[in-house]
Design a protein around this nucleic acid. Structure first.
Length: 265
DNA sequence: GCGACAG
DNA sequence: ATCTTGTCGC
């Protein structure tokens, strides 16, 4: 793996700068949510995996590992795989500056600009590997205001995205324990998540036969939940879909390398 | 005040 | 996200 990575610049148009207040962020999420053009979703016809793989030949995954020394520095990993074979086609890491802290419910304001920049770099430098759908570490519409980081990334890239969270964010009357109980009781390996608003918000998945802790999948942008669930199952060799697992691995490695270089000097 | 809190 | 050892299993 190359230890060379480009430094990303922060594009404030995606998050309106560091001086924004929480109220302004909420207003932005509410406004952006309207642009998702979401039709209230129903679990209708079964999805054909073959046609899914034709629609999405390349699967992308992004993840971020924070720098141990600098609060506002992080390493973005991006991985692109063949959807049919899960063969790794391309991966790269980038150093990025994060301009705002993490606040629960506003992860996208911290991470999305760096993730978006990484995908745009890929589009420019290796257009043949530009993915047809992007797995994002975090939630899509399974979010207090229906606009998680995966929505933010997808909307501004105009690219289908799937939110994949490793822990549950209590939202719309849904609670982590009750969701897990319900999932474990039934025989299916996944459970649709319907909140007290009666809307379908996402799904809890036991992604692999040997996995005990669920992951939580929700629509980010321009994809159906059933398509997202099928793609996630297909892409899971382990608990987390391969594109995200690889992106996580290389971004951690980049952070580790940076720490080593720092301790040398 | 209390609990909950993606990464 | 991170703090943290061993242990069981393929």
């Amino acid at each position: 793996m190359s230890s060379k990575h480009d430094t990303l610049t922060y594009n404030t148009s995606y998050s309106r700068s560091k001086s924004a207040t929480i109220e302004e962020w909420i207003a932005l999420q509410d406004a952006w949510k309207e642009q998702l053009m979401l039709e209230p979703e129903v679990l209708c016809s079964a999805v054909d995996l073959e046609s899914l793989l034709e629609t999405f030949p390349l699967l992308g995954g992004v993840d971020i590992t924070p720098d141990r020394e600098h609060e506002n520095v992080a390493y973005v990993g991006i991985a692109v795989l063949s959807s049919r074979t899960l063969e790794l086609k391309y991966c790269q890491t980038y150093r990025a500056n994060l301009e705002v802290p993490y606040i629960p419910g506003f992860l996208g304001f911290r991470e999305a600009p760096a993730l978006i920049n990484a995908v745009e770099c890929l589009k420019k430098e290796k257009p043949q590997y530009f993915p047809h759908v992007l797995f994002v570490d975090g939630n899509g519409i399974l979010h207090p205001r229906g606009f998680g980081s995966a929505c933010q990334v997808g909307l501004f890239l105009d690219l289908p995205t799937i939110g994949v969270a490793k822990s549950f964010l209590n939202v719309d009357g849904l609670n982590s324990l009750q969701v897990k109980d319900q999932l474990y009781q039934q025989e299916n390996r996944w459970l649709p998540l319907v909140g007290s608003s009666n809307r379908l918000l996402g799904a809890a998945l036991l992604s692999n036969g040997s996995v005990k802790r669920p992951i939580f999948v929700s629509v980010g942008y321009r994809i159906k939940l059933l398509e997202a669930v099928n793609l996630v199952f297909h892409a899971c060799r382990y608990r987390v879909p391969e594109p995200i697992r690889i992106a996580d691995h290389i971004s951690r490695e980049a952070a580790r390398q940076a720490l080593c270089r720092m301790q040398e000097s």
